[in-house]
Simulated assay, not measured.
Amino acid sequence: MGKAIQVQGLRKSFKNTEVLKGVDFEVERGEIFALLGSNGAGKTTIVRILSTLLRQDGGTASVNGFDVMSNPRKVRQAISLTGQFAAVDEMLTGRENLIMIARLRHLEQPRQAAEDLLRRFGLTDAADRKPSAYSGGMRRRLDIALSLVGRPQIIFLDEPTTGLDPEARMEVWKIVRELAAGGTTVFLTTQYLEEAEQLADKISILHEGRIIAGGTLAELKKRFPAAKVEYVEKQPTLEEIFLAITGNKEAI
């Protein structure tokens, strides 16, 4: 089946600013892959390229075995995208939002698909209310549910917990784990280091337009100086690893 995502030498500039300077990484099928980086590092630019919303200036990128530039239609059939802010229609109820997307995806039973997702995401009781009456966590659950209409093989979650309170964030984490357990490949961008530490099978750190480190959490910990031994061994957190690798040691 090959890799879910393969990126080699990816480059992108906006006017005179080079945002991506030759990015390389791979994502295995069925895993949760976290792309870490500060604001402006280029995370969303990568997501937009991989989801065929933006053309790269150089390098190659393939999703589900299809090149994003030469075969964008095939890529779009395999993916779904949830951005930083919930993209729901405020004039429709939760149920109507789901039915609309199911019809746009030409599902044979759009109402049944909507009911299944409402049940799965714990939104049945709120199905006939408009999103303006939802809490932040409920809106995000609806947004992710909309992304799963048609059962995409790969889902991009671009900073999905931005602006959510801790309880709502935990709700999203649970959904992400369930997606991966069901075989969906999850590509997650985040600036919350704890989020990547809790969820990701693999992590890549994007800094100044390049991937400067990647691997499992255990592999990244090996790059950190030996643990300090006081009364017990103190293992580095992902935040300490991130700051050390990006050169911001004074912040540790």
Rank of each mutant, 00 (worst) to 15 (best):
A244I: 12
N39S: 15
A213E: 09
E230G: 10
L217F: 07
L148G: 05
L10P: 07
A196K: 05
R73Q: 02
D143M: 03
L164T: 08
R76D: 05
K174C: 04
G65V: 11
T184D: 05
G9L: 04
E239V: 01
E195V: 09
A227K: 06
E26C: 15
K3E: 13
T93S: 12
K228H: 08
I155W: 02
I245W: 02
L199I: 03
G122D: 01
R129N: 05
V27D: 08
V229H: 10
L98T: 06
L117I: 05
E108S: 14
G163D: 01
L164S: 10
K3Q: 12
S13V: 11
A41N: 13
M91Q: 13
L206H: 12
L10F: 05
T184H: 01
A86E: 01
K202G: 01
M170Y: 02
V7C: 02
G136N: 04
L92P: 11
Q8I: 09
F25R: 05
G136R: 00
A200Q: 02
H106W: 08
L142R: 11
D165G: 07
V149G: 11
L53S: 00
L92W: 09
I46C: 09
K234H: 02
I241W: 06
T52I: 06
D67E: 13
A218Y: 04
G59C: 08
V23P: 01
T93E: 03
P152F: 12
A251H: 12
S135H: 02
M138I: 00
V75E: 02
K234P: 11
K15F: 10
H207Q: 12
V229Q: 10
K130Q: 01
S135W: 07
Q84A: 02
F121V: 07
L54F: 00
L188C: 14
G214L: 04
K43D: 04
E195K: 05
K43W: 11
L10H: 00
R29L: 11
V172W: 10
I241V: 10
E208M: 03
E230S: 14
G150H: 04
L36K: 05
T190V: 00
T190E: 10
Y134A: 13
E197S: 08
V47N: 00
P160G: 14
M91S: 14
G137N: 09
D201W: 04
R76E: 05
K174D: 13
G65Q: 10
I175T: 09
V7E: 13
R103L: 10
F25L: 00
G215M: 04
Q6P: 12
A145H: 15
R55M: 10
V7S: 07
D201C: 12
L53G: 12
V229E: 02
G215I: 15
E197H: 11
L164C: 09
G183M: 03
V23L: 00
Q56T: 11
A218D: 07
L118Y: 10
E171C: 00
